[in-house]
């Protein structure tokens, strides 16, 4: 397994690539990721971005809020456009890193065909999905990754179905690298990007990204809520390299705990889960407990 230097808040670069005064909402989880992520990626990158909050955050013509070259493209074709940019870089003999950066809708739903194709071809790109678990840019409609029971404007009584486990779907393609991240752990994201840059082939990074207006919480709670999702074992941080899965530190340390905080604590921090019944929450808790029982078997036996 490839390892990268551990970045901490003190040695993290002070170079900034995103201008203040952009159009992201106050307390935006994506903004934290984008700001810190660019520090890891550096200037020799080209971004491909489909319609998403990022499109708006990056600025309206003629002003760009980011200092990167960006190709905004159609919703369904992020991975395809990135493939084309990568092919052009190859033709031009450039090492420039091609980074596709899309939301959950652009990745799990409308963009999954192009992503699957790029995964199969193992294109040499980094594909980042910031998953805020609904279509936030258009005003909080359900997406394929919206969790069961979640309230959105198109699931006014709560989503009936379970969300897609996108990183596992991606992992089933056997790409070069799969990792999950959280907007609440930007340094973990930073270092996973540093690692991804060293790997050739398709690198996929899936980030749970709290969104105050979409999740129904105070803006100041963005980081707290993301951490709560990990602390209760609902969302886990991991890496898959050469088909081998490894939990990342914030999740790995949960293996040692006899009992995790109840998922209820996480759910009650957000209004989007207020339609969940006690039975539904109990089922959710059972699934989490089972997952961690399996994880303990898998990772503690080694």
């Amino acid at each position: 397994m490839t390892t990268a230097a551990k970045t901490n808040v003190l040695n993290l670069s002070t170079e900034e690539f995103v201008h203040p005064g952009n159009r992201a909402c106050s307390g935006c989880g994506l903004s934290i990721l984008y700001r810190i992520g660019l520090k890891a990626l550096g200037r020799d990158c080209i971004f491909v971005v489909p319609p998403s909050c990022l499109t708006v955050m990056q600025g309206l013509f003629p002003i760009a809020a980011s200092q990167m070259p960006i190709l905004n493209g159609t919703f369904a074709s992020t991975a395809a456009i990135a493939t084309g940019v990568r092919a052009a870089m190859k033709r031009r003999g450039k090492q420039t890193q091609v980074v596709a950066w899309a939301g959950d809708g652009g990745t799990a739903d409308i963009g999954i065909q192009a992503l699957s194709g790029a995964l199969e071809r193992n294109e040499d790109i980094i594909y980042i999905c910031y998953d805020n678990e609904a279509y936030m840019n258009t005003g909080v409609q359900r997406s394929g990754t919206t969790p069961q029971g979640g309230l959105t404007t198109t699931t006014p009584y709560g989503k009936k179905e379970q969300g897609k486990n996108l990183p596992e779907i991606v992992a089933a393609h056997n790409p070069a690298y799969v990792a999950t991240c959280s907007a609440s752990y930007p340094l973990d994201f930073h270092d996973k990007l540093l690692k991804a840059k060293q790997i050739s082939g398709l690198k996929y990074i899936h980030i749970q990204t709290p969104c105050p207006p979409g999740w129904g919480c105070e803006e100041r709670m963005t980081v707290k809520i993301g951490k709560a999702a990990i602390d209760c074992g609902l969302f886990d941080l991991y890496e898959i390299e050469d088909g081998k899965k490894q939990l990342s530190e914030p999740s790995r340390k949960l293996l040692k705990k006899a009992k995790l905080p109840s998922v209820q604590e996480y759910l009650s921090m957000q209004t989007r889960f207020k339609a969940l019944s006690d039975e539904q929450i109990a089922v959710m808790q059972e699934r989490i407990d089972q997952k961690w029982a399996d994880y303990r078997q898998e990772f503690c036996a080694e």
Binding site: V9, L12, T14, E16, V18, H19, P20, G21, N22, A24, C25, S26, G27, C28, G29, L30, S31, I32, R35, I36, P186, L187, P212, E218, E219, R220, T222, V223
Partner: peptide, 26 residues
């Protein structure tokens, strides 16, 4: 680290650029 809007300085006395700070409170 956590400021989404790049308005806090990494200085011994951290400064906040109120021109652009959206006031999220993170």
């Amino acid at each position: 680290l956590y400021c989404p809007d790049n308005v806090v300085s990494k200085t011994l006395e951290p400064k906040i650029d109120l021109e652009y700070c959206k006031g999220c409170g993170i």
